[in-house]
């Protein structure tokens, strides 16, 4: 009996920051000061969300484009490489794999400043590609590592008959490997969406023009009282935070099944 009870308490505490944000995003500032823990005042302040949306919508769509293009790029490139490393023999394979895998040990902070300067030299500051291209590169190591380990685990028999029929590697990759890899693909996609959608440091350097920011940059610099007519600054900020979470919420609600399958398929270990 104590197991489920303990888990419920722990889950509640883990979820409380979200609950807290939901409650207080629907209040006025004085109402939050009186009691931030629960709903006490009616009507709820839905207008907070409207004001928040007006302030961040441009950044929201900028981030949506950057994140989706980057993640599609990561999956496309990394699954091809993962297939090659898992199933095609070629010279210097292990060396090349270690070169890519070694990037897992190269921390983001080491390359942050030279990368920023490189993006600037390419003339990509304040341009979506200034983030998309580095994100595609940055996602390769982990994704290839997981794809390779998953593709190696696929039974040989499923390939054999197709090879008899003269299937090429591109056919094997597109017709056999990809359809069998949807859970692991979704898992890698989600991990990358979460990382890119929530990234702040690189965008704060690369996309800092007032008119064209990513969501993270826009929300962190949200504190400036641009929307002075309303007094509920703090509550509107919370509303903006929740709006920023909606894409991930959708993603998880539709793809949770695949995500758990992928994470628990045993490919994610060393």
């Amino acid at each position: 009996m104590w197991l489920p009870a303990g888990l419920i308490v722990l889950a509640f505490i883990s979820l409380y920051p979200i609950i807290y944000a939901v409650i207080n995003s629907l209040k006025t500032e004085p109402q939050s000061t009186v009691n931030p823990f629960w709903f006490t005042n009616w009507p709820l302040q839905w207008s907070n969300f409207l004001i928040a949306f007006e302030t961040i919508w441009h950044a929201f769509f900028t981030s949506a484009i950057i994140t989706s293009v980057s993640v599609v790029g990561i999956i496309a490139l990394a699954s091809l490489s993962g297939y090659a490393f898992a199933r095609i023999p070629f010279p210097a394979k292990n060396v090349l794999f270690m070169i890519i895998f070694g990037l897992l040990l190269v921390p983001g902070f080491l390359t942050l400043i030279p990368l920023f300067i490189e993006i600037k030299d390419f003339g990509l500051l304040d341009h979506d590609l200034g983030l998309i291209l580095p994100y595609i590169a940055g996602g390769q190591a982990f994704a290839i590592f997981v794809f390779r380990s998953f593709f190696s685990g696929l039974p040989d028999e499923i390939f054999e008959s197709a090879v008899m029929d003269g299937a090429s590697d591109l056919t094997l990759y597109g017709r056999i490997v990809m359809p069998l890899s949807i859970p692991i693909m979704v898992t890698i996609a989600i991990i990358n969406v979460v990382g890119i959608w929530g990234d702040y440091v690189l965008p704060s350097l690369v996309m800092n023009a007032t008119g064209h920011r990513t969501l993270a940059v826009a929300i962190v610099s949200f504190e400036a009282p641009k929307f002075a007519p309303s007094l509920n600054v703090y509550n509107i900020e919370l509303a903006a935070y929740l709006l920023a979470s909606i894409p991930l919420l959708f993603l998880f609600s539709f793809l949770m099944k695949y995500f758990i399958q992928g994470m628990t398929s045993g490919s994610i270990k060393m």
Binding site: A11, I18, G198, L248
Partner: peptide, 13 residues
């Protein structure tokens, strides 16, 4: 599932 839900909050949020 309940313990995964907090993942919907982006890191900066």
């Amino acid at each position: 599932t309940m313990f995964i839900v907090p993942m919907v909050l982006p890191g900066f949020v």
